[in-house]
Computed example of a mutant assay.
Amino acid sequence: MVNEDRTAVARQAAEAGAAVAVERFRTEIDVEQKEGKTDVVTQADRDAQVAVIDAIREPYPEDAIVGEEEDELKVIPDSGAAWVIDPIDGTNNYVRGTRVWGTAVASVRDEEPLAGATHFPALDDVYWTDGEQTYRNGDPVTVSTTDDPEAGVVAPTLWWDFDARDQYGRACQAIVDRFGDLRRVGCAQAALAGVADGSLDGVVTNLRANPWDTVAGVAMIRAAGGTVTDLDGERWRHDSVGLVASNGHVHETMLDAAQEIGRIE
């Protein structure tokens, strides 16, 4: 029952944030740069985060909240219950009018995910997991059965800034050398959801990911039968260096590709 409650709240909170964000999608909004020219934020991000937090605080007023915007925690606590939220994952897509963006919410305890949800309102898709099964729009989904890398489709994820474009180039080269095709999604949670539902066979980065970009999607992949590790093939954690996610069947080839990109601490 506890996990069912947290799954329900994750879904409600993701829906609340997405409802705020979609109202302003493809409208005139002010865009601010954060640390880079493609690292942007809008007032819609901030307002959507408030809606997500309000939906969580009512049933769980004492839980920690880890979030991308404003003054929320930036690191998942070592112990206790916490929520990891991203009001608009894929903000660069959002501000350009591209539909691939969403609101992600994950419930964790003692650093381990219990439940997660990501709402992609412009795509009319909602994903969630209770830790045992992953669903898209209410229907159970599983990872793909592709076992031939040359038939596989893989996405490089997160963003290599201008001082790391050599790694971005190596990531793309490593993928196209080994796999049938490459997708650049522009939204980490959408890419991870794609592995969970089988529309992608893998996702890779050598970067240390932010928890709000990854935790909900990683939980979905694992519950859908997939594999998520760090660059060394060890079980991925929210503070791991690198993220290699796959359907499991092509994971060794995914690791080869990841290691070719190079390690960044």
Rank of each mutant, 00 (worst) to 15 (best):
M1K: 07
Q12N: 10
V20T: 11
V31I: 15
K37W: 15
T38H: 14
V40K: 06
V41T: 14
D45V: 08
R46V: 13
D47P: 09
A51E: 07
A51Q: 12
I53D: 09
P59S: 07
Y60F: 15
E62D: 14
D63I: 08
D63P: 02
E70L: 15
E70I: 07
D71F: 07
V75P: 00
G80Q: 09
W83L: 05
V84D: 00
N93I: 09
V95D: 07
R96Q: 14
T98V: 11
R99L: 06
R99Q: 09
A104Q: 03
R109M: 06
E111Y: 01
P113K: 06
G116P: 00
A122N: 08
D124I: 03
D125T: 08
Y127F: 15
W128H: 06
D130I: 03
V141N: 05
V143M: 03
S144D: 02
S144F: 10
T145E: 14
D147S: 14
D148S: 12
A151K: 14
D161L: 08
D161N: 13
F162I: 05
A164G: 01
D166I: 02
R170V: 02
I175E: 07
V176L: 12
D177Y: 02
F179G: 02
G180W: 05
R183N: 05
R183M: 13
A193C: 14
D201P: 03
G202T: 04
V203A: 14
T205K: 02
T205E: 02
T205D: 03
L207S: 01
R208G: 00
N210D: 04
P211H: 01
V215G: 01
R222T: 05
A223G: 06
T229Q: 04
S246V: 04
N247G: 07
H249E: 15
D256Y: 02
D256M: 07
E260N: 11
R263W: 13
R263F: 10
E265H: 12
